[in-house]
Design a protein around this nucleic acid. Structure first.
Length: 799
RNA sequence: GGGGGAGUGUCGGAACUGGUAUACGAAGCGGACUUAAAAUCCGCUGCCCGAAAGGGAUUGAGGGUUCGAAUCCCUCCUCCCCCA
């Protein structure tokens, strides 16, 4: 008998799996299955392996159930690591990236992933990023892209811009110099104009609740009111608040140190305010202490008529709301702390139910809802319920108006980096900002640049920077910023569908046929950024007439992390398991099987070397059994009872595996197959090569195929087992089978009786009472019996 | 600080809609094969009492609803993730 040699088998079939093409059978339904494409950082890690194993298993299952499945793969190839490698070791980012892609692709092929490789896209290739530029121009035309000043992290020693994650405790990650905040003109996309729609459409998505919630929080819609506070001199300052129920308790006001009103009312305090600005810039939100400069001019609380002090404060942002807030120390934590520090009055306007707060004795702000006091005609009302009434009152008196605020900011897409999509605009002294005409795309990334680690290499590349104005042909300069790589990943799923199109990013007819993506699989870390940007992009493309759908991903599965020794795998912890080692030592089938078996997909997966050995053992037993079934070995006849039981178990297992796979419950599906194998093996030990063993093995091979494609493919070829259809089960056999009914006395297990589901309660009770083991617990009068057919009979006895 | 998720044997994890808690796998123990080991195969294996038959307690802690709770409700504890 042939031994199971995974190396030989996997080598034999990997190219076959990698050469699969999408064949559209019009009588079958289409299904678009998508996995998040990787950043080509070097080699696959276990998180990738988990993501793709889930996808490929599901894809094979769908195909066996009669779907045409679109299953593409690509590489998110622009980004910082390539550029950092160039700075560090002088390698060309392009070469670095492509050699990583080659490595990762070969690993993916070794895993047996059956991607349609003819669709592959690599975002750093011209035929991809030119369409980024094309989209940028469309955004510009539609008024959805604009320039404005925005703060960036600047390392004065490396002379470069840093991403947030490259700033560690206010210092540059590479040279540890203090990071400065600089203000630069940068490009933004107006994602905020889609905020309302992005929020409303969340309801239509079949996504995990926690991701939907994270998106809602990220968008951060708050309904409130804009209130005018007159100044004692002249003019007014507007504040935005979601808590107008506390307006009567506003005893001071805080405004941003960049607030324009300061020009008028704080001329004599300029120096103090400048000092405050410095604190605001250098400290991160977390460690920032609340500082304020008391202004000489006071404001008037519009409902109490009281004069209240104004502070320029470092914790009020000009970007959010109106750049000014009303402060209610009694009912807001931050205001309370500030009031204590500067010795400001605290006035209670909301009492907890059944209690009267004493402002002098309060240790902390009372932020909950309660009963309104000290607020004129609203006294005695519930604070939360009264909010809307109070806003009506303010609108009526022309003191304020209803307003909606969002936490969502416009999307900053400028990166002062080389390795990204050049933003296709030109700066001309005469014409200003001029978009590069469509027919001149792509604006190519120059190849001969130097990476010094200081500044953006594009700025120093003269043949790139110097150009002619497309409008007036006078000398002009190119934009040297490149696009955020989230731009690339916001539409890649559309390019897959028509990856070779030379005239358009994709043909709308083709996209409309397959969009939206039916199932998207990826990590939870993308719950906000990528998944919001892609949704936004899709809506814009819909409004450009390129797409019918406004939502890209119908269903989403977020897989958990792969951990080892209780911690996330990372180089610094030294607990990284290499994908190459797994494939080399245990094989792709065993690796896939273990990943799916060890934990349900959405939960974290604890890696275990012992665990994967268990999967190797299972595959070995599986191989041996099927080989034996198709050998010349003779067997005995199965007794009728065993025959029936085998039939029942087959149907039950097929049903369970099918149902579980539909719900991504791979772990229990595999357990069911193992259970079946254990059962069949016991029959084999007793009856050797019994007649039904061949048919049973065939079903086992078919059931296991989506999980372990190599071993099953090899067996299928040897013994002519079709793998194009998922096996079928007989519902009748499952329904009519006898079930073990549990007999309880007062809720405690006292015995078991086999019975049909049609068995009557009285008959079963009679049978139960005949049993000595059960009878002895009936020590009093039977008050009640509860019978769930096929499950339990509970006899309730009174003592 | 805000939001979310999770606590079940020695470990990873099962348990349908409230209905046999611990499926499946790992580890452990015993046996077979072997000169020996590994591999493989067979059997046992959550805890307490008991020689056994059997019985009792048990799903982070405490309480409640119910004939019946890992599952539903309340209070509390611990861990993880995301956002700030």
């Amino acid at each position: 008998m042939k031994e199971y040699n995974f190396k030989e088998i996997e080598k034999k079939w990997k190219d076959f799996f990698a050469s699969q093409k999408f064949v559209e059978n019009p009588s079958k339904k289409n299904f678009y299955l998508l996995e998040m494409f990787p950043y080509p950082s070097g080699a696959l890690h276990m998180g990738h392996m988990r993501n793709y194993t889930i996808g490929d298993t599901y894809k094979r299952f769908l195909e066996m159930n009669g779907y045409n499945v679109i299953y593409p793969m690509g590489y998110d190839a622009f980004g910082l690591p390539a550029e950092n490698a160039a700075i560090k070791s002088g390698v060309d980012p392009r070469k670095w990236t492509f050699s990583n892609i080659e490595k990762m692709m070969s690993q993916q092929k070794q895993m047996g992933l059956s991607y349609q490789w003819d669709r592959v896209i690599i975002t750093c290739e011209e035929n991809y990023y030119r369409w980024n530029q094309w989209f940028f121009l469309k955004f510009l035309e539609k008024g959805l892209a604009y320039r404005k000043k925005a703060p960036i992290n600047w390392c004065p020693s490396c002379k470069t811009v840093l991403a947030n994650e490259q700033v560690h405790n206010g210092k540059c990650w590479r040279c540890e110099a203090e990071v400065e905040i600089k203000s630069l003109e940068q490009w933004f996309l107006k994602i905020t104009s889609y905020a309302e729609e992005l929020l409303n459409d969340i309801e239509t998505l079949d996504w995990p609740e926690r991701v939907k919630l994270q998106q809602k929080n990220w968008l951060g819609k708050s309904e409130g009111v804009r209130i005018k506070f007159p100044l004692e001199t002249e003019g007014f300052v507007e504040v935005f608040t979601t808590r107008p129920d506390t307006l009567w308790g506003a005893t001071f006001m805080a405004i941003s140190c960049n607030h324009p009103v300061l020009e008028k009312i704080a001329e004599n305090q300029k120096e103090e305010i400048e000092n405050l600005k410095k604190i605001a810039l250098t400290q991160s939100e977390e460690e920032k202490e609340k500082h304020g400069v008391k202004l000489s001019v006071k404001a008037i609380n519009p409902v109490t008529g009281e004069k209240i002090p104004i502070f320029a404060a470092n914790f009020v942002l000009m970007e959010y709301g109106t750049g000014a807030i009303m402060c209610v120390p009694a009912h807001d934590k931050r205001d309370f702390a500030f009031a204590k520090k500067y010795n400001l009055p605290v006035r209670v306007v909301i009492n907890p139910p059944g209690e009267n707060l004493n402002p002098e004795k309060m240790q902390e702000a009372y932020v909950e809802e309660g009963i309104i006091v000290n607020s004129g005609k609203f006294n005695g009302k519930n604070s939360k319920e009264a909010i809307s009434e109070i806003i009506d009152f303010l609108e009526e008196k022309k003191l304020g108006r209803r307003e909606i605020q969002w936490k969502l900011r416009d999307w900053l897409i400028s990166r002062q980096r080389y390795w990204g999509t050049p933003i296709p605009v030109v700066y001309c002294e005469k014409c200003g900002i001029v978009p590069v005409p469509e027919n001149e795309l792509p604006v190519k990334l120059p190849q001969n640049v130097r990476f010094t680690g200081s500044g953006n290499p594009l700025e120093k590349c003269q043949e790139f920077v110097n150009t002619k104005c497309p409008k007036c042909s006078s000398p002009a300069k190119r934009e040297t910023d490149t696009l955020d790589t989230f731009f690339d990943s916001s539409w890649y799923f559309l390019r897959y569908l028509d990856s070779k199109n030379e005239n358009l990013p994709f043909d709308p007819k083709i996209a409309n046929k397959y969009m939206p993506v039916d199932q998207y699989i990826g990590g939870i870390e993308h719950a906000t950024m990528h998944l919001i940007y892609a949704r936004f992009f899709t809506k814009v493309l819909r409004d450009l007439g390129l797409l019918k759908t406004g939502e890209p991903f119908k269903k989403l599965l977020c897989q958990g992390m792969v951990i080892k020794d209780g911690a996330k795998m990372s180089k610094s912890k030294g607990n990284v398991v290499s994908v190459d080692d797994i494939l080399e030592n245990y094989g792709a089938d065993a690796g896939r099987l273990f990943i799916l078996f060890a934990s349900p997909p959405e939960r974290d997966l604890e890696w275990s070397d012992e665990g994967i050995k268990g999967c190797v053992r299972f595959l070995n037993r599986f191989w041996q059994l099927v080989q034996f079934a198709f050998s010349d070995e003779k067997g005995e006849k199965l007794p009728q009872k065993e025959k029936d039981l085998l039939k029942l178990n087959l149907s039950r297992t097929i049903k369970k595996v099918k149902d579980d796979l539909k719900n991504f419950q791979f772990n229990t599906a595999i357990a069911a197959i193992q259970e079946l194998l254990n059962f069949v093996q016991k029959l084999k030990n007793l009856y050797s090569n019994f007649e039904e063993l061949k048919e049973t093995s065939k079903i086992l091979v078919q059931l296991l195929h989506p999980f372990a494609p190599f071993i099953t493919m090899e067996l299928a070829q040897s013994f002519e087992i079709p793998l194009n259809k998922f096996p079928e089960y007989d519902e009748k056999i499952i329904k009519s089978s006898q079930k073990e009914v549990v007999i309880q006395v007062n809720g405690k297990l006292r015995g078991k009786i086999f019975a049909n589901e049609s068995e009557s309660k009285d008959d079963l009770l009679k049978k139960a009472l005949e049993k000595e083991k059960i009878k002895k617990f009936i020590t009093g009068e039977i008050v009640k019996t509860v019978y769930i057919p096929g499950k339990i009979l509970n006899i309730v006895v009174k003592y």
